[in-house]
């Protein structure tokens, strides 16, 4: 594998990379094998990278998520096929889908933001809902999806964890930037959501207020109080 010729133009030996993941006999070996497989950039590696998400090895899962995000659309179907009962793997899958931004992940991200028990998963789902790639869609379809993202994000503006609300503020800002002429009806509720996050309410820490005010200042300079 170390030979120069192998690096130039030759197909990677996917079978060997997969075998290394399956036969890893230590945590460190698994991390290393997962990294190599993730770096291959081979669409056929996706199902195996998804398997790695369930191995209860955070280092390997981080590498697999990176690899899956790199594969973009090719990773989506294997991620969506994950058993919802496999909680650990699903939490990582949410991160991968959030990073990929493929619209097929919408339902899973909405469910995760609304009901996952782990704040880190809800946080990733919120960010993902603000960053779906919708440019290639028909305007009416795009608007439907934006409305769906907005509804889920607004519902999460009173999430009990500050970090989720912080992510919601970031996501609302990026969702707003993707709205075009057709999305005017979404503009006001979106800004209202950011205003509620910018309020000095009990239990809403300064960092969340600050982030929401920053978003408002960028989107609607008249909406921010000095």
């Amino acid at each position: 594998m170390g030979e120069r010729s192998a690096a130039v133009g030759h197909p990677v030996d996917l079978e060997a990379l997969v075998a290394a993941v399956r036969s890893a006999d230590s945590s460190a070996a698994l991390v290393s094998a997962a990294r190599s497989l993730a770096a291959s950039g081979e669409p056929a590696a996706a199902p195996v990278l998804v398997e790695v998400l369930g191995f209860n090895n955070p280092g390997a899962a981080v590498a697999a998520v990176d690899g899956l995000i790199r594969l973009q659309g090719a990773a989506v179907e294997p991620l969506l096929r994950l058993d919802p009962q496999n909680y650990g793997a699903r939490a990582w899958a949410v991160r991968a889908l959030a990073g990929i931004g493929d619209v097929r992940g919408l339902t899973l991200l909405v469910d995760a933001l609304g009901s996952d028990v782990a704040a880190s998963v809800r946080r990733a789902a919120a960010k993902g809902l603000g960053g779906l790639r919708l440019q290639h869609l028909e305007p009416s379809q795009r608007l439907d999806i934006q409305a769906c993202c907005l509804e889920a994000l607004l519902a999460a503006t009173d999430d009990g964890e500050w970090v989720v609300r912080y992510a919601v503020a970031v996501a609302l800002e990026s969702l707003a930037r993707g709205l075009d002429g057709g999305g005017e009806s979404l503009q006001q509720p979106l800004l209202q959501g950011l205003r509620s996050l910018s309020a000095a309410a009990a239990g809403n820490p300064p960092v969340v207020q600050l982030r929401a005010r920053l978003a408002l200042a960028g989107l609607d300079p008249c909406a921010v109080e000095p």
Binding site: P58, A119, S120, Y166, P205, P206, V207, L210, R211
Partner: peptide, 29 residues
């Protein structure tokens, strides 16, 4: 974990002062 880094950066925003300023801290968060 990113969760812990986010908690630490929240502390930098809320308990700290000076440089780097808030825009840089929030961008990292």
């Amino acid at each position: 974990e990113n969760s812990l880094k986010l908690m630490a950066l929240r502390g930098l925003v809320e308990q700290g002062s000076g440089e780097p300023g808030e825009p840089a801290l929030l961008a990292c968060m």
